[in-house]
């Protein structure tokens, strides 16, 4: 389904620059949208062709939870919605 030009490798997930990504279930996603009181398109986007999304097998419409290591807060959680381009 996702157009794959290059093969993505699991090892990129352990790269220092790549934070933890998790694919949310529909229930979790609905909870997140309710908590932040936003519509899906108001979340930051992430492409289906993003290597990490491809490894997680994400599809457009899925919401991804990203746990960033932040130099100011220690850890911060953000959400991105998978979009099709």
């Amino acid at each position: 389904m996702t157009p794959s030009k290059v093969r993505v490798k699991k090892k990129i997930l352990s790269h220092k620059l790549v934070p933890k990504h998790e694919l949310l279930s529909v229930e979790e996603a609905a909870k997140v949208l309710k908590e932040y009181n936003v519509k899906p398109y108001q979340l930051p986007h992430i492409s289906v062709n993003d290597p990490v999304v491809r490894l997680l097998n994400g599809h457009p419409g899925n919401i991804i939870r990203i746990t960033r290591k932040s130099p100011t807060a220690g850890e911060s959680v953000v959400y991105r919605i998978v979009v099709a381009y």
């Binding site: 290059v6 990129i12 990504h21 992430i46 993003d50 290597p51 990490v52 960033r68 991105r80």
Partner: peptide, 25 residues
């Protein structure tokens, strides 16, 4: 060491490691 090796090319990082890695870079 593929966990630390990096480049200063932001577009390339976005392609290989994803948009979050590009943000960090």
């Amino acid at each position: 060491d593929y966990t630390r090796t990096h480049t200063n090319d932001i577009t390339e990082t976005a392609e290989v490691l994803g948009i979050e890695a590009a943000r960090n870079l």
